[in-house]
Simulated scan of single mutants.
Amino acid sequence: MRSLPLFGVYLALLAPAAVAQDTALPPLEEQTVIEDQSLKALRQVQDYMDGVETLEAEFRQHAPNGNIATGRLYLERPGYVRFDYTDETPFLIVADGKTLNFVDYEIGQVTKWPLKKTPLRALLGGSVDLASLQAHIEMGRPGFEDLILLSARDPENPEQGEITLNFMPDDSMPTGLRLLGWQVLDAKGEITQLTLTDQKVNTALDDALWTFEDPRGLTKRRRTRR
């Protein structure tokens, strides 16, 4: 795991000609039920975005090359996040409200992206951002019928990739939903997956979490991450 995976794009094209003439369309009632379920799920996700102001959790990250990293996630909406790696990974990822910083303490390098041009915008914004990111809902997977998947990408920056947030109903959470994690699909068609456990929501977080020790120019590299 040498650098932050590049964010890419996934374009799904659907043309009317792709439906054969002899293919029967689902009954109108069935289509309506599916649409109603999707709208309800979208409202639930919007409630989550509006109701969860902070989130703290353990994370497990699976990179496309098979590498696994672990750490602790701190999130404050809108615009703040910290991926604090707790294993031997010498990286730190911090968003300070405007900029996403990827800090490599091993080689003394900091790479920056405008936060609004990364897929994490869908996670760190509010419900109002979902429409601008062309968010769409999928319902369920075999064995996980209650799963809600929200996919989003920035139409103005499609090369930055697509993020899919995974939610499950959970009455123990303030908004009735639990964020299980997400996947990011990059321009190469490779997926980086992250899962969350041990979550705490709407607790006070220290403002120092959104800062970092800049390793550039240091004669001795250190792994201090705050």
Rank of each mutant, 00 (worst) to 15 (best):
Ala17Trp: 11
Ala18Ile: 07
Ala18Asn: 12
Ala18Leu: 14
Ala20Thr: 09
Ala20Arg: 11
Ala20Gly: 15
Ala20Val: 05
Gln21Ile: 12
Gln21Asp: 15
Asp22Ala: 12
Asp22Ser: 13
Asp22Phe: 03
Thr23Asn: 02
Ala24Cys: 06
Ala24Thr: 13
Ala24His: 05
Ala24Gln: 15
Leu25Met: 09
Leu25Ala: 11
Leu25Gly: 02
Leu25Cys: 04
Leu25Arg: 08
Leu25Asn: 04
Pro26Lys: 01
Pro26Cys: 01
Pro27Asp: 15
Pro27Ala: 15
Pro27Gly: 15
Leu28Glu: 15
Glu29Val: 05
Glu29Tyr: 00
Glu30Gln: 04
Glu30Asp: 07
Gln31Cys: 10
Gln31Pro: 04
Gln31Glu: 13
Gln31Met: 15
Gln31Ile: 09
Gln31Asn: 14
Gln31Leu: 15
Gln31Ala: 14
Thr32Val: 11
Thr32Lys: 00
Ile34Val: 11
Ile34Gly: 03
Ile34Met: 07
Ile34Gln: 11
Glu35Gln: 11
Glu35Trp: 00
Glu35Phe: 02
Asp36Ala: 13
Asp36Trp: 07
Asp36Ile: 06
Asp36Val: 06
Gln37Tyr: 08
Gln37Pro: 05
Gln37Phe: 06
Ser38Asp: 07
Ser38Gly: 10
Ser38Asn: 10
Ser38Cys: 09
Leu39Pro: 01
Leu39Tyr: 04
Lys40Glu: 13
Lys40Ser: 12
Ala41Thr: 08
Leu42Thr: 10
Arg43Pro: 08
Arg43Phe: 11
Gln44Leu: 09
Gln44Phe: 05
Gln44Val: 04
Gln44Thr: 03
Val45Ser: 01
Val45Tyr: 01
Val45Lys: 01
Gln46Cys: 08
Asp47Cys: 06
Asp47Pro: 06
Asp47Tyr: 10
Tyr48Cys: 02
Tyr48Pro: 01
Met49Trp: 06
Met49Thr: 01
Met49Tyr: 05
Asp50Thr: 12
Asp50Val: 10
Asp50Pro: 07
Gly51Ser: 10
Gly51Tyr: 03
Gly51Trp: 03
Val52Tyr: 01
Val52Pro: 03
Val52Glu: 03
Glu53His: 14
Glu53Ala: 14
Glu53Trp: 09
Glu53Gln: 14
Thr54Glu: 06
Leu55Cys: 05
Glu56His: 04
Glu56Asp: 07
Ala57Ile: 00
Ala57Gly: 03
Ala57Ser: 06
Ala57Pro: 03
Ala57Tyr: 01
Glu58Cys: 10
Glu58His: 14
Glu58Tyr: 09
Phe59Met: 05
Phe59Ala: 02
Phe59His: 00
Phe59Lys: 00
Arg60Tyr: 08
Arg60Gln: 14
Arg60Lys: 14
Arg60Trp: 05
Arg60Ile: 06
Gln61Cys: 01
His62Glu: 11
His62Asp: 07
His62Pro: 02
Ala63Ile: 06
Ala63Pro: 09
Ala63Glu: 13
Ala63Trp: 09
Ala63Asn: 15
Ala63Tyr: 14
Pro64Ser: 05
Asn65Tyr: 02
Gly66Tyr: 02
Asn67Lys: 12
Asn67Trp: 08
Asn67Tyr: 12
Asn67Ser: 11
Asn67Pro: 05
Asn67Ile: 05
Ile68Phe: 07
Ala69Val: 07
Ala69Arg: 10
Thr70Met: 11
Gly71Tyr: 02
Gly71Ile: 03
Gly71Asp: 00
Leu73Met: 09
Leu73Val: 09
Leu73Thr: 01
Leu73Ala: 07
Leu73Phe: 06
Leu75Ile: 11
Leu75Cys: 06
Glu76Pro: 08
Glu76Met: 10
Glu76Arg: 10
